[in-house]
Design a protein around this nucleic acid. Structure first.
Length: 659
RNA sequence: GGCGGGAUAGCUCAGUUGGCUAGAGCACACGGUUCAUACCCGUGGUGUCAUGGGUUCAAAUCCCUUUCCCGCUACCA
């Protein structure tokens, strides 16, 4: 017998800084549906997920909590795993970047790349964002803030190691061009090409000395491996990869030899750059083949206002599961997520979907079919061969369904695939109307026709339920259990009439999906929201405090170098060529300075005029977007990056010194 | 500023290489039905296919204008 075809899928590993919300959970469920489908198709599947556990952010958070980083990540990683389990995700491997074998291999990978010159030692000088763990050049900063999260950055200089990306750029460009499927959806390919690859890659900083909670660089004390080499490597270390050969075996099997290269890296669209550029370069450095496909999926967003723990409106998978059940939540996230646009999740939307698709279309179908079978046929429907033309319409749709589902799944169109399955159930409901079993049931002479009708129905439902397995495994089991039917294999999906003669359905069908009253659900959501708010700051309106990384102490002399004055804005206009800049004429004493600031998002040019604000006056002038700026307007900034100008608390004349 | 994508029914979106009265789901309305979880089935849209122009026998579909949205990216003292 030939070896089974293998299929290796990974998700991104989740960062252990806190409980994952429904958007993160979506990725695991999406991955699960894909691998379950592959298993059904007979592939030998390996599904790996896990947690990313190093970094300064965790070092700081654990310190605040008064525990060690390891204790901290043990706790959070456990929480994440339990949500993945709750969602019934069938991963084969849950890797943690604090696992010993992983740490050891990361060190070896780092060393190997260093020894062959792909990693070199240099200096990193720039602005550092702690939450994002990223360095930026000052020119990359947004108002001196992190371009990713908008928070404060600190100047920092570190001795650091760099990965030479330029060396492999040409090979990578060629690979991407030759493999149009490598990056999915395709629109993302252009972004990577046009923004990074074609303009030329800058070398990537791959070590840190500013924190300790990471995998040490074993040949240079003080350095730890910075996130990407650590995190991305999980895809191979989780298979037992060893840099020196002699891969670790699992159950006597060399999983790396068997499963690498990965068939699919499933990741969020926000980390495509790392997976389509840095990771391939690392692999080339290691002399390993590249993964076959990388899919940057869109996100499930919460649309009802800004997500905020203190407001209590963050939607978590376990809360949804409490109300609707696992498969309902799986159904929702899979169905609602388009292929390349972000989807929306809310309590209203999920209630509508559950009621209409799961309770009405599917649940009620199973229920009415079983009821009729019991009522008219003592629970046993058999094919008596009394056919009518409508039967063929039903049969042809049902027997063709698997192929359609498979086509959609092949293209990773999971939402479309699940819709195809539900077309089967909808057709069944229509068939009931067309055949009117309750009328047949009143006429003893039509009994064989009735039996055939119900048999066809049950057979169709069995097929539909079997197709549903990848998406809603529990429901598949429940339906088949109630019908006492055997799950159809992929090879039998296009066959009709496998439901064994003489099989008796259950006498009391259990409600598969309850209908939910919208008002009740929303009330429940309110309750959950209140509890959440209470747990995160007593329900107070966003009175979060913000901690930023302390800067080194300065002397009074340092302070005196800076000249702050009150400035009155006497004119202001938008900088045409920029999305963020306003250009203000600011009266400071008797002179007028032109100052450009990145606050267009928060202030309109008109409303700026007349404001008295705090100005850093003696900053070296610079050109921004081609416009001269002779100072800086000072702003306060919250955690979401919203800005507020700073004004004197009482009216003060323009030019008044701030000291 | 650069590159890319989008603008179609109240809402979410399909519309393949231009071709017959522009579609689906949800919501809504009406009709039918009663086996079932007040469910299911059917019927119902005068939609300027964002805008203005062009190519064509024929354009939502191709080309150009304008406006507005979104991605990525640069700049953002």
């Amino acid at each position: 017998m030939a070896e089974k075809k293998t299929f290796y899928l990974t998700t991104a590993i989740a960062y252990t800084s806190g409980k994952p919300h429904i958007g993160n959970t979506y990725e695991a469920v999406l991955a699960d549906s894909i691998v379950r489908f592959k298993r059904q198709q007979g592939y030998d599947v390996r599904f790996q997920t896990g947690t990313d556990e190093h970094g300064q952010k965790i070092e700081i958070k654990s310190e605040e909590a008064g525990i060690t980083p390891k204790q901290f990540v043990d706790d959070v990683s456990g929480q994440i795993k339990s949500i993945w389990d709750l969602m019934n995700t069938s991963y084969d491997k849950f890797i943690r970047t604090t696992d010993k074998y992983h740490e050891k291999q990361v060190q070896k990978i780092f060393k190997k790349l260093y020894e062959q010159g792909d990693i070199y030692k240099g200096f990193y000088e720039g602005m550092y964002c702690t939450p994002c763990e990223s360095f930026f050049t000052s020119s990359q900063l947004v108002d001196g803030k992190c371009p990713d999260c908008g928070r404060e950055c600190q100047p920092a200089k570190e001795e650091a190691y760099f990965l030479k990306l330029s060396k492999y750029a040409d090979r990578l460009i060629e690979h991407i061009n030759k493999n149009p499927d490598f990056i999915q959806p395709e629109s993302r390919k252009n972004e990577m090409m046009n923004n990074f690859l074609l303009p030329g890659l800058q070398d990537l900083c791959v070590s840190r000395t500013s924190f300790k909670w990471g995998i040490p660089v074993d040949f240079d004390e003080g350095h730890v491996v910075y996130v990407w080499i650590d995190a991305l490597s999980n895809y191979i270390t989780g298979l037992g990869y060893d840099v020196d050969g002699g891969n670790e075996l699992e159950g006597g099997e060399d999983l790396f030899a068997k499963f690498w290269p990965a068939d699919l890296h499933l990741i969020g669209k926000d980390i495509l750059r790392f997976h389509t550029i840095y990771w391939p370069v690392m692999l080339m450095g290691l002399g390993l083949p590249l993964p076959k496909k990388i899919f940057g999926h869109p996100w499930l967003l919460q649309n009802d206002g800004k997500m905020s723990k203190s407001k209590g409106n963050v939607i978590y998978a376990d809360d949804l599961v409490d109300v609707f059940g696992v498969d309902a939540v799986r159904y929702f996230v899979l169905h609602e997520m388009p292929f390349d646009n972000d989807g929306v999740v809310s309590w209203e939307l999920i209630t509508e979907r559950v009621n209409s698709d799961l309770a009405n279309t599917l649940g009620n179908l199973v229920n009415r079919t079983i009821s009729m079978t019991n009522k008219y046929l003592g629970g046993v429907a058999e094919n008596k061969g009394i056919e009518e033309p409508v039967d063929n319409e039903l049969k042809s749709l049902v027997t063709a369904a698997y192929k359609k589902v498979a086509e959609k799944m092949e293209k990773l169109r999971v939402a479309d695939a699940i819709t195809e399955v539900f077309l089967v159930f909808k057709r069944c409901n229509k068939y009931i109307d067309e055949t009117e079993p309750w009328i047949l049931g009143k006429d003893e002479s039509k009994k064989d026709r009735l039996s055939t009708v119900l048999y066809n129905l049950i057979e169709s439902i069995v097929t539909g339920a079997s197709l549903l397995e990848a998406f809603m495994p529990e429901t598949t089991g429940k339906i088949l259990g109630q019908l006492n039917a055997v799950k159809k294999s992929v090879g039998d999906m296009d066959k009709f009439g496998l439901y064994a003669p003489g099989t008796k359905v259950t006498e009391k069908p259990e409600i598969l999906f309850a209908r939910h009253d919208m008002e009740e659900v929303l009330a429940k959501a309110e309750e959950i929201s209140a509890l959440q708010a209470a747990a995160n700051g007593g329900g107070k309106e966003d009175e979060e405090v913000i901690d930023i990384e302390p800067k080194p102490e300065i002397t009074f002399e340092d302070f005196e170098k800076m000249q702050f004055q009150v400035g009155e804005i006497i004119a202001c206009e938008e900088v045409k060529k920029s999305k963020k800049l306003l250009c203000s004429q600011v009266k400071v004493g008797s002179q007028v300075k032109q100052i450009v600031s990145g606050i267009k998002q928060y202030y309109k040019a008109e409303e700026m005029v007349g404001k008295k604000v705090m100005v850093l006056v003696n900053l070296k002038p610079a050109k921004l977007a081609g416009v001269l700026s002779e100072g800086m307007l000072l702003c306060a900034e919250d955690a979401d990056g919203n800005l507020a100008l700073v004004s004197p608390e009482k009216n003060m004349p323009a030019g008044a010194e701030i000291c």
